[in-house]
Structure formats: C-alpha cells, structure tokens
C-alpha cells in the first residue's frame, strides 16, 4: 500500500500556488470557505484511498497541534 506523498509531487508548484491564490483573490471569507470545502471534496475523491486520506487529515491537524505546543501554555 502506498503512503501519503510528502515530497514535492506538483508538475509546477509555483503555478498551482498562483492559481489557488487567484481563485480566492476577490472572495470574501465565506465564499472562500465554500470554495475550499468543494476543493477538498474533489481532491479527496481523486485520492480515494481511505488510509491515505486519514493520513492527510492527521498531518494537517498535527501541525496545528505542534504550533499550539510551541506557543506554550501561557501564550494566549
């Protein structure tokens, strides 16, 4: 079974990032949230494999957890 790809896998990373920003450029937060939700569902279906998706969810949530730890208990 393959594991989540965490090395660069884009055909053109800069172009993707620019396109992502372009989609959101003129959106308010609510519209952006809707676009992001649709985008995640579309990409999740493309990945398909439940264990890969769970790994991705874990990695995504883990960074938030690490940041909270790095800030320490007394930081608001």
């Amino acid at each position: 079974m393959s594991s989540l790809e965490l090395e660069p896998n884009f055909t053109d990373a800069d172009a993707f990032y620019a396109a992502l920003a372009e989609v959101h450029r003129d959106c308010d937060d609510e519209t952006s949230r809707q676009i992001n939700a649709r985008l995640i569902l579309i990409l999740a279906n493309q990945v398909g494999d439940q264990s890969l998706l769970e790994e991705a969810l874990h990695v995504a949530a883990e960074i938030k957890h690490q940041q909270a730890q790095a800030r320490g208990p007394n930081t608001p």
């Binding site: 949230r33 809707q34 939700a37 649709r38 995640i40 569902l41 579309i42």
Partner: peptide, 14 residues
Amino acid sequence: TSTIRAFRDAALEL
C-alpha cells in the same frame, strides 16, 4: 460547526 456545514453544503452542491 459552520465549517462542517460548509462541507455538507459543498457535497450537496457538487
């Protein structure tokens, strides 16, 4: 939550 609701609505729209 409102974010989970956004996913639900996205699923329905798609």
